[in-house]
Write a protein that binds this DNA or RNA. Structure first.
Length: 575
DNA sequence: GCCGTTTTCGGCCCGACTGTTTTCAGTCG
């Protein structure tokens, strides 16, 4: 059983939780948390680095001790420090930490005084009124605990970013009704275009926060008010989504936007830099001693700290601060750079609109081309096309092209990758297509070696252009299948084919970390929507968000090419 | 437990809100 970064990160997180409950030095706890976050965000498996003889202490935040612990986890599956902690404190105790309002101190008291080891224990104790009798806890704490347990409210709950857009816009509209002119922004992971969000963070610049606070906590959709202060309030909506509102003065708007956009790791790194330069950064501005230096705009904050403006998508403490200092940040791709969509479906397979309708809609968006890539015959559930039907579709495309001016429909297929790595359609027809996307739609449970070999073999087909949704993940519902993506990237680089960033908000596959690793190795990315209807052509914005988070520039994206250049590039891929 | 243009010790981002307290610890982001 190979050890992945997620496994190591989970163990370090558990150690951090247990150490915190055990009253360990907070900076020691933080070291484990930082390491967990760093490892989880890496594009390459630490176990592979280790086996290749790399020095793990070269990784930021990993010193001698943590390197040894990683080695232990990779070779034995566990580490003594964790086993010792588990003997001292029951493992189920970390579930209790996930309840909102319960941190390490309270969890420790609950365990020591009431022998609470699990959520079940806690519910029994709270119902018996034993919790409110403890020092530092009262009736309100007890009620809150019971409420959160029965509602299964978990502080780590996340939502697809795309799914919260309507409620975010509606709530913003509600607040605009109170203060029409006030600058107002959604910050947090929403602004950073993360695939999922844990909550919404709304920032407003205003001299009179109270009416905004009142309107916010009395909003129709509010289920519960979690906090209600003079400049900061938090609510939970009926959907379960938590929303925070923060109001600051205009002179602090930029600093607050930076602070509120995060990520936490980015903020810590920026504040550390500020400290080294003799400044202090908080949500009110940049300060030299007591004196306010900057803060009305984010640009000012960065400039004062000697940094170029860092786009929100890059603020993850993944090297953006050093790049900003060196004035070497990438010029990120934007939706306006996209000239066409290379993965979409028509009524021939499981799409809802005809080829002509899709083409007209794409043209109306300002695209120059699209590729029709209906499913192949193996995917019977999606009415996949066999050779005969695909030949007929190719003729239909010729007709559409002869009737449309200034727009080109390319012939394509999203062809299934079979069990043995062959493709679901013969080379004779693949050769006559413009774009061949290969995708895995079955046998997700192969072992990592077999799955990797299967996909690499498919990529070797001379007509193969793009690997569709490379890991098969469905956010919040299905884990990616076991596949060695670093090897797939390496193979794509050698073979000269592309990898996809699929813009479907449930997929956003390839994930940013791998997509960044891919472009670093010279692999070109195709950002597509996988649209099954005219409306879904809009999903491009989500794919672009993921691409920007991967530090991707226009030059890295296949479908930012003009039609002429695209044809040239495809010819090279297929040569 | 990590880290170093103040480098092997002594720091480690910073502030709002709540509940339980009589001035603050705990939690959160």
């Amino acid at each position: 059983m190979p050890i992945h970064n997620k496994d190591i990160a989970a163990k370090f997180s558990e150690i951090a939780d247990l150490l915190e409950i055990d009253n360990a030095n907070e900076f020691r706890v933080r070291a484990y948390r930082n390491a967990a976050r760093t490892i989880d965000a890496m594009g390459q498996d630490v176990s592979a680095l280790m086996e290749a003889g790399e020095d793990l202490t070269q990784i930021q935040g990993i010193g001698d001790e943590l390197a040894k612990k990683i080695e232990s986890i990779v070779t034995t599956g566990t580490v003594k420090a964790l086993e010792d902690l588990r003997k001292k404190l029951p493992p189920g105790i970390t579930d209790i930490l996930k309840l909102p309002g319960l941190g390490p101190k309270k969890v420790k008291v609950l365990y020591q005084e009431l022998k609470v080891k699990s959520l079940e224990d806690l519910e029994v104790a709270a119902k018996a009124g034993k919790v409110s009798a403890l020092p530092g806890m009262g009736k309100k704490t007890e009620e809150q605990i019971l409420k959160n347990i029965t509602a299964r409210i978990d502080a780590g709950l996340r939502f697809l970013r795309a799914n919260v857009v309507p409620s975010a816009e509606a709530l913003l509209g509600h607040l605009r009704g109170i203060e029409k002119e006030a600058p107002m922004t959604l910050c947090g992971s929403y602004r950073r275009m993360r695939d999922t969000v844990g909550d919404l963070d709304i920032l407003v610049a205003s001299e009179s926060p109270q009416p905004l606070m009142d309107a916010f906590v009395s909003y129709d959709e509010v289920d519960e008010i979690l906090a209600n202060g003079s400049t900061k309030s938090s609510v939970r909506l009926r959907s379960g989504l938590q929303v925070d509102l923060r109001v600051v003065k205009e002179e602090s708007y930029g600093a607050a936007m930076h602070y509120f956009t995060g990520s936490q790791a980015h903020n810590i790194a920026v504040r550390r830099r500020a400290q080294e330069m003799g400044f202090k950064v908080n949500e009110y501005g940049v300060f030299k001693g007591e004196a306010y230096v900057a803060g009305a705009a984010e640009e000012e904050v960065f400039e004062t700290l000697g940094l170029a403006y860092i786009e929100p998508e890059l603020r993850e403490d993944r090297g953006e601060i050093a790049s900003a200092q060196a004035r070497a940040l990438p010029g990120l791709v934007s939706e306006g750079d996209i000239r066409g969509d290379l993965h979409l479906h028509s009524t021939a397979s499981d799409g809802r609109n005809s080829i002509r309708e899709m083409a007209e809609a794409a043209k109306a968006r300002g695209y120059a081309y699209l590729a029709v890539t209906d499913h192949s015959k193996r995917l019977t559930i999606a009415n996949g096309l066999d050779e005969k039907r695909l030949r007929a579709q190719m003729e239909e495309i010729d007709t559409v092209n002869s009737e449309m001016k200034g727009f080109t429909v390319l012939k394509g297929s999203e062809v299934d990758i079979m069990d043995d790595g062959s493709l679901d359609l013969p080379d004779e027809i693949l050769r006559d297509l413009d774009v061949v996307i290969g995708s895995v739609h079955h046998k997700f449970k192969l072992g990592i070696e077999e799955q990797t070999m299967r996909v690499m073999k498919a990529m070797d087909n001379p007509y193969f252009c793009i690997l569709g949704h490379p890991t098969g993940r469905l956010l919040l519902s299905r884990e990616p299948y076991e596949i060695d993506i670093p090897r797939i990237i390496e193979h794509a680089a050698q073979r000269g084919c592309c990898l996809e960033i699929n813009g479907n908000p449930q997929r956003l596959d390839l994930h940013e970390i791998y997509a960044r690793a891919a472009i670093q190795q010279g692999v070109m990315i195709s950002v597509n929507t996988d649209a099954h209807s005219v409306e879904q052509l809009d999903l491009m914005q989500h794919g672009i968000g993921q691409a920007r988070r991967a530090w991707i520039e226009t030059k890295h994206v296949l479908n930012t090419r003009s039609l002429k250049d695209l044809r040239k590039t495809l010819a090279v891929i297929r040569s």
